[in-house]
Amino acid sequence: MAVILQSEPFDPGQLLGSFCAGRRETGAVASFTGLARAEDGATMTLELEAYPGFTDAAIEDMAAAAAARFDLQDLLIVHRTGPIAPGEAIVFVATAASHRRAAFEACDHLMDWLKSRAPFWKKEHGPDGARWIEPTDRDRTDAGRWDEESKP
């Protein structure tokens, strides 16, 4: 099991290839890659702030719980931090299990948690300046954007 926070871009295909390599008892690997959207030019750059030592520890705790709950053989989470351009991958999750249902469900579960609860602070830089995205603001002023984002 590995959780990696990094500011450098990553290649999801390469991560998936490495994750699958050398497995003889794994029947299923599910993966998810999240990309930064331009939102019709409204977002020029996304900036994700993490608290090193706190953010990764929280993700590791949650990942360990998910691994136990879904009986995973292995999982990998790679998450970008810092400025992220539209089209770049923000997050990569891969899960390995004996059978596909557990791999799918665990991947879905991990992404739901990462999207809503992971301790990141997200700033959108657009043509009209920058703004922090917070759940409370979302509810009050921008429910539509967040609803759209939370769709699977």
């Binding site: 608290y51 706190f54 997050v91 999207k115 992971a118 990141f120 602070w121 922090w132």
Partner: peptide, 10 residues
Amino acid sequence: VAFLPPMSGG
């Protein structure tokens, strides 16, 4: 000591 505003998720 760290002060943490509401977290946005990733």
